[in-house]
């Protein structure tokens, strides 16, 4: 276990190496947050939707704050596969899927923690209807945190599965472009899933993409009632198990038919 934990510490050190990048990321995400909230406010001014504007604003800010969890691929990992640097990882006495899973998880968690805290503090200070509202209640907050943790496990498993496919296609660009499109759309980052037509929502919220941020945010704002929480958490857990198993299987097959690029 120590090896996998060590990966987290390494990632924390990496994140603190480039402080300017962290600041730049925060500014960029805050900018996007403000613009998006302004757009939804304009839309609501013409025709209010079923979901209150305060919830939409909270939804946007939470999405922006945890953007790095959602959409961050480790360029090192992808590059390793492309150039053959993965050879080193293959001669380590670790479970390879687990090693990469830990790396992906660490990247998502450490990367977003540094950014999320100042951003959420900022968003809480904004006027009502513009910024982040308080959670629907203490139980809702706890459920949301649990859902965020499970969602993170689920999303990391999905990304590690993509990594496994990258080992086959040898170039990550096509795979990653598709993955990014699906993630951005079905996670609620592009448009809050709560604003999709109800019939769409029934399907979209079941997909793994919705598990990372949409599920916890709905619990946070109270759009999903507390009574729904067990079902949501169960769905997340099922997805996580399925995706981890599929990933392990793919990695095992890959290891057997491996070619190291670049001599």
């Amino acid at each position: 276990m120590r090896a996998y934990y060590s990966i987290f510490r390494m990632r924390r050190r990496m994140e603190t190496q480039y402080r300017g990048a962290v600041l730049g990321g925060i500014i960029c995400q805050v900018f996007f947050g403000l613009i998006l909230v302004a757009v939804y406010r304009a839309m609501y001014a013409g025709r209010p939707q079923s979901m209150p504007i305060e919830h939409v604003a909270s939804y946007v800010w939470l999405q922006q704050a945890f953007f790095r969890m959602l959409l961050s691929n480790d360029p090192d990992l992808l590059d390793k596969i492309r150039t053959g640097g993965i050879a080193y990882d293959l001669c380590r006495p670790v479970h390879l899927y687990g090693y990469y899973y830990a790396r992906i998880l660490a990247q998502k968690l450490m990367g977003s923690l540094l950014r999320a805290v100042p951003m959420l503090a900022f968003a809480l200070l904004l006027p009502r209807g513009w910024g982040l509202s308080l959670p629907a209640g203490a139980p809702a907050l706890l459920c949301a945190l649990a859902a965020l943790a499970l969602g993170l496990l689920c999303m990391s498993a999905l990304e590690n599965l993509t990594m496994g496919f990258t080992m086959r296609t040898l170039d990550h660009r096509g795979m990653q472009a598709m993955m990014n499109l699906l993630t951005i759309t079905f996670s609620g980052n592009l448009l809050p899933l709560t604003l999709f037509p109800d019939s769409w929502q029934r399907v979209i919220t079941l997909l793994p993409y919705a598990q990372l941020l949409d599920a916890p945010i709905r619990l946070y704002t109270g759009d999903s009632a507390l009574s729904l929480a067990p079902g949501i958490l169960l769905l997340q857990a099922v997805w996580t198990v399925v995706l981890v198993l599929a990933g392990c299987l793919l990695w095992r097959v890959n290891q057997r038919r491996l070619i190291i690029q670049g001599g």
């Binding site: 390494m10 050190r13 990496m14 190496q17 480039y18 090192d76 150039t83 053959g84 640097g85 050879a87 080193y88 670049g262 001599g263």
Partner: peptide, 9 residues
């Protein structure tokens, strides 16, 4: 011609 050490740390 490859590296096992982390570039940034």
């Amino acid at each position: 011609q490859r590296s096992q050490l982390w570039w940034d740390v």
